[in-house]
Write a protein that binds this DNA or RNA. Structure first.
Lengths: 211, 211
DNA sequence: TCTAATCTGTAACAAATGTCACCGGCGAAG
DNA sequence: CTTCGCCGGTGACATTTGTTACAGATTAGA
């Protein structure tokens, strides 16, 4: 992990901070599909994503899991950043969507830098704030939108993230939107009928709105 | 506002912080029903609740408003605490539910103390974190629970907050749960039938589960 | 007192979503 | 090649929630 690369990923930090991070952090890699964080697990370090994409779920014993958000390069996991304030074991599941690389920061350092580096402090707050906004957004969708709108929004985000060729099964989409596979199949079929998408096996192609 | 009272409300702060807060803060009061924060309004100060209860809504131009949470004495509004990092005007509506008293802290001080007082920093983070947890909880309810369960949960929280005599109209409850009055009436009637509550005019009495 | 507004109850219906049953197609493992 | 499991499609139906339309009851105010 090079200094230059780090500065690129996190452009808003102060000078001394980069060096400290490089020194204190452990560089890790993992292959697609790996579970990075299990619910109930004690969190000892925080994650800064270097490359790849991570998916975060909220786990619940009774009702299953709930998709929270993606983590991308240059972002940090808000949950692990502040989870030690009460020694809590956050009920979160993190999975690598692609092959990934990340820096693991010991929580003691996270804490130490808060006082030492203003930019780190802001980074933490900003991370939290943006996640908060995202959650509000999600709530808004669930509370006010119907499934067809949510699905379209979901697909559009996938397109923005990985291009017009969406490699997801109906099952996976249904899981992310907390509904059943049949409902998704139904709505996708309708969207195909409306010329928004093309349905292939294991994948969907976004062709957008005509006119 | 006395030092002793302040220490009581916010027991986890450092010594010098109390004095600074007393000096920098403006003490305000407002009567029940007052709108304390309008969406789009520029936020110049953060609120620390001294007495009474405040209700926070997320405002949206197209789909109306969404009830977020209550603010109680000893708590701070997470939204106003960090809203200036990008000069944003958060889309939030705050209303006094009861007569209230609060301290208004200039945002410059909020920022200054972050670096000066570790306990203040933790206070801010903790505030954010607990709101985050609460949002997750809310999402969970909306995503997984049906209306009857949500209603029961809602009523139970009211009971915990203000006692078994719930002074709310069906209309108000419906607004908080983003549904229609008729649905609430229907479900309440069923709950009465099941012996959970007694319905009066303008109010509901919680009698709990038998056995 | 009379009137208007608000609150609650309810029936009937519409729409959205969840569930069940079953089918055929495809691909991986043997 | 055959079998098995996952993927997608689809129809029928149940359930939940939203909507419309009213009616009676209570309260506030003129």
């Amino acid at each position: 992990m090079e200094l230059k690369e780090l500065k690129n990923l996190f452009p808003d930090w102060e000078e001394g901070l980069y060096e400290e991070v490089l020194e204190a952090a452990n560089f890790h890699t993992a292959t697609a599909g790996t579970t990075l964080l299990k619910p109930g697990q004690n969190i000892r370090s925080s994650m800064l994503v270097v490359s790849g994409t991570i998916k975060l779920y909220r786990e619940d014993a009774t009702d299953g899991e709930f998709f929270m958000y993606y983590l991308e390069p240059g972002e940090a996991c808000a949950v692990t950043l502040v989870c030690d304030f009460h020694q809590e074991t956050s009920q979160v599941l993190a999975k690598a969507v692609t092959d990934i690389a990340y820096l693991a920061i010991p929580l003691s350092k996270v804490d130490e830098w808060l006082r030492k580096y203003k930019s780190w402090h802001y980074f933490v707050i900003r991370t939290y704030r943006s996640r908060y906004e995202e959650l509000l957004q999600t709530i808004h969708s669930i509370a006010f939108k119907k499934m067809d709108e949510r699905l379209e929004q979901y697909l559009l985000r996938q397109v923005g993230r990985w291009g017009t060729h969406i490699k997801l099964t109906h099952q996976e989409i249904a899981a992310d939107l907390n509904t059943s596979r049949e409902v998704i199949s139904r709505l996708l079929k309708k969207m195909e009928h409306d010329g928004l998408i093309l349905l292939h096996r294991q994948s969907i192609e976004w062709v957008g709105r005509k006119g």
